[in-house]
């Protein structure tokens, strides 16, 4: 599934004195099977952009295309199943008496039979490695476990595109690494992930492409090498180190492992 935003504008509270333009002409495609990272400061429009990908927010101007066709012609429920959106701090959406029942909420809403719902729940819980918590109350879990239960609740819809809004905010380094593992596994199955983040180090590890938003506009879009080496001051630690060294023969590594390899070669050579 290919999602494309075409010259999307969004204005909050139009026509009132609280009017705020959040997106000002964003054009961007999410290709099948890629991890697209959207980075930018607070107020740059990242979360607004995320909510346009399943039309929870409607563009004030411009449109969303799904596989080349205008999404307004699609059923909203269908679009929201295929584009799974995980909000920032999603643990605030847990409401059921057990993790299993909470994760079953979305597949039940799809009208699946009991067996199919059970299967979806099992898969989602296994994917997030929380099968052992299935019968616990979501309110008795730790912060990281709650976050994973909430993400499982979206994965249970079996979406083709997964949109994660700041999924690692407030998580410890271990939980963060596990979550990035989930992103990679999801892509390996040929599906796409939109990762909204302001942690450039984690973006460096998993992103295939990076989109930099600034005050509602796309400031830069390309591979991590292109985007980060074009502006090393605003880049992950790996790129900052390589740029500061200024050794062109080392190439343009972005990921930690690649950077380490390049540095080793420099030291030995």
């Amino acid at each position: 599934m290919r999602l494309e935003l075409e010259d999307v504008h969004h204005v909050y509270a139009p026509g009132t004195r609280f009017e705020v333009p959040a997106l000002r002409g964003v054009s961007l495609a999410v290709e099948p099977g890629e991890v697209l990272a959207v980075v930018g400061g607070t107020g740059s429009g990242k979360s607004t952009l995320a909510q346009h990908l399943n039309l929870l927010l409607k563009p004030t101007r411009g449109r969303l295309l799904v596989d080349g066709e205008d999404a307004r012609g699609m059923k909203l429920g269908e679009l929201r199943r295929r584009v799974g959106l995980v909000f920032q701090f999603p643990e605030a959406q847990l409401f059921e008496s057990s993790v299993r029942r909470d994760v079953a909420f979305a597949p039940r809403r799809l009208g699946l039979g009991e067996d199919a719902v059970g299967e979806r729940v099992r898969q989602a819980l296994a994917e997030l490695e929380i099968s052992h918590l299935a019968d616990r109350s979501p309110f008795s879990l730790s912060g990281g476990e709650r976050r994973r239960a909430a993400i499982a609740g979206v994965l249970a819809m079996d979406p083709e595109v997964l949109v994660l809004d700041e999924p690692t905010a407030g998580l410890d380094p271990f939980a963060r690494a596990e979550l990035l593992g989930l992103v990679r596994r999801f892509r390996e199955r040929g599906r796409s992930v939109v990762l909204i983040s302001h942690d450039l180090d984690e973006v460096a590890e998993v992103a295939d492409r990076v989109c930099v938003l600034e005050r509602g506009r796309v400031r830069a879009l390309g591979t991590p090498e292109e985007v980060f080496y074009a502006n090393p001051a605003l880049a992950p630690a790996t790129v900052r180190v390589m740029a500061a060294l200024g050794r062109a023969e080392a190439g343009r590594p972005v990921r930690f492992a690649d950077t380490l390899q390049a540095l080793k070669e420099l030291l030995e050579g």
Binding site: G84, F87, F105, R109, V154, M157
Partner: peptide, 13 residues
Amino acid sequence: EKVMKAQAARGAE
């Protein structure tokens, strides 16, 4: 509003 949106993303009507 935030919670309603999050549940709408999971198919709530």
